[in-house]
Simulated assay, not measured.
Amino acid sequence: MDFVNLIKTGNSWKFATEADLEDFVWANLKELFGLIPLKRQYYVNGQICDILALRENKQLVVLELKNAEDRYIIQQLTRYYDALQEVKPLEDEIDYQQPINLIAIKPNFHRDNFIDKKYHHLSIDFFEFAVLLDKSNYYLQIKNLDDEKVSKIKIPHQDREKNEDIPPPSRGLMNRLAKCSSEQQEGILKIRQKVLSFDKRMEEISSAVSFKYGNGNSKTSKFCAEFYFDSKGMPIIFLWLGLKNNSSGRISRARIWTDWQGNALLEGYVPSGIGEKITSYKKLISNRIAKLYTIINREPKMLYTTDFKYIRQYCKDRNRVMRKLNNNEPIIYEECKLLEVDIERYAVGMKRYVVFDFGDYEPLNGFVDVALEKWLKRL
């Protein structure tokens, strides 16, 4: 796992949700318990088991996790045991001739838990866990209450102490971020921190494919920013900025390109959705650029008759981009790269252009600052 949701409660730390605890234990079953992951949130005969795992000898182990005190965990594990023994699922992987081992994992155990276990005939182990802070590192410590053995593993954690009022990223956002690069993850979390820290009225509104930031989700709500994830799971940033390349007082939802290293461009305005026209146009220009570089890098250096249609198209595209720049209109990243293509020397009689090494990007933080200021004025 790249990072885990932790929250501070008093002087101690805990997993933000039970799902976060389960995610981390599932990802580290081998290191913590020497177990092989089998199934999680497994439905059997009306019961849903948190985690099913195996020992090397194919013995089944059932783990039930609680992020807080629970007086009835023994009864819950008993129901899982009964359902598994009755149905005997996954028989190709599990040896049901061996006893099923039941494990309860909690931050602390109630007195009733020990009484229930004392008079129970099933094999049930109690493991108590704690999140420990050592200097700047966080660890999950798990202690077997039967034999007092302790294991500890480092927890990758995103530092959110700057503003403890900010809620941790939801599980939905964390799942989306898991498919992103480390630069994208860091960039998105920094913007999220900045936006949610800006004003107490700022809220995070999540849906299946996007995470919006504004003062609620009603018809009169004003939005500031949005992370939208496309069909491949890649993030696109939208900010509510001024029309006419952010020069107008009228606000609209702007699609932002970024290299996730601080550089950005306002590529166009999209009232809703992802902006399929912009996406298609970006792909079209990218393909044209690739063809131009094929011509440039060809050995031996020569032009074929079929090349001239790409060169003519290049001239049209370049002139269109230059008109946009002169009129202070938004241009996409691929149009910037088009201006850097030097192909004229291969075309006899073709108009000579100055190769444009485009470096006039805007700082991403600057766009976010403007979006926040404009949002505040609109409230």
Results as ranks from 00 to 15, higher is better:
58 K>V: 03
326 N>P: 01
229 F>G: 05
363 P>T: 04
55 R>L: 08
164 E>W: 13
138 Y>S: 01
162 K>T: 13
237 I>H: 11
301 K>N: 00
35 L>V: 01
58 K>C: 05
373 E>K: 11
153 I>F: 01
22 E>P: 10
83 A>W: 07
199 D>K: 00
111 R>N: 14
3 F>K: 10
257 W>Q: 07
333 Y>C: 06
253 R>M: 09
322 M>R: 07
200 K>H: 05
378 R>P: 10
256 I>A: 11
187 G>P: 04
75 Q>D: 15
42 Y>L: 01
160 R>D: 05
154 K>Q: 05
17 T>I: 02
80 Y>H: 12
367 F>T: 12
30 K>D: 09
16 A>D: 06
256 I>F: 07
314 Y>K: 02
235 P>Y: 08
343 I>W: 03
303 L>G: 03
209 V>C: 09
172 G>T: 05
138 Y>P: 01
111 R>I: 15
195 V>R: 03
347 A>F: 14
206 S>V: 00
34 G>W: 03
216 G>Y: 03
316 K>V: 09
9 T>L: 12
73 I>P: 12
350 M>T: 11
152 K>R: 08
139 Y>L: 02
218 S>H: 03
99 P>M: 05
377 K>Q: 08
303 L>C: 05
119 Y>I: 14
352 R>P: 04
239 L>S: 04
131 V>D: 04
330 P>A: 05
152 K>L: 05
20 D>L: 08
78 T>N: 15
87 V>N: 12
283 K>M: 11
92 D>V: 09
121 H>M: 10
326 N>M: 00
71 R>V: 14
348 V>A: 12
94 I>F: 06
349 G>A: 07
233 G>M: 09
190 K>L: 10
24 F>A: 07
348 V>R: 15
300 P>E: 02
344 E>W: 10
210 S>D: 10
310 Y>E: 14
298 R>N: 06
337 K>T: 02
256 I>V: 15
78 T>I: 15
197 S>V: 01
167 P>Q: 06
233 G>A: 13
32 L>M: 05
186 E>H: 03
222 K>G: 06
367 F>E: 13
35 L>W: 01
351 K>W: 08
172 G>I: 03
6 L>S: 05
173 L>D: 04
346 Y>G: 02
265 L>N: 00
109 F>G: 08
53 A>E: 07
158 Q>A: 13
305 T>K: 08
64 E>L: 09
32 L>W: 06
287 N>F: 13
